[in-house]
Design a protein around this nucleic acid. Structure first.
Length: 96
DNA sequence: CGAGTGACGGACG
DNA sequence: CCGTCCGCCACTC
């Protein structure tokens, strides 16, 4: 599901979970991403928390890395968060 | 099988 | 707007 997120777009954990058919498994998504091996091709950095906020994880620098990766795709941050109305990917919005 | 945990999310204070 | 709590549910120990 995460791999389906277009470049330059982001989706919330809850959104990914819902698209995967697991409405109440936002946490499960985070858990799954946390288990992803470093060499995984999954664009985990395109998955953010609600409101476009980057969720804290075990590695503090990882958040910075994620932000850097997202900005590299043209995603803009405002007040430490992503403008979901512009970069948010609903899964139904196909105009990538 | 029971208890603890988590890259969440929404409700509350 | 910010910090905290509770609910969620699968996974691990």
């Amino acid at each position: 599901m995460v791999e389906a997120i277009p470049e330059g777009r982001v989706a919330s954990y809850g959104r990914v979970a819902a698209l995967a058919g697991l409405p109440a498994h936002a946490r499960f998504v985070g858990y799954a991403l946390g288990r992803l091996p470093p060499e995984s091709a999954v664009p985990w950095h395109r998955v953010v928390g609600s409101g476009g906020r980057i969720s804290a994880r075990n590695d503090d620098h990882g958040q910075w890395l994620q932000r850097r990766l997202l900005e590299g795709e043209g995603i803009e941050f405002s007040a430490g968060r992503i403008a979901m109305d512009r970069f948010g990917w609903t899964g139904t919005d196909e105009n990538a």
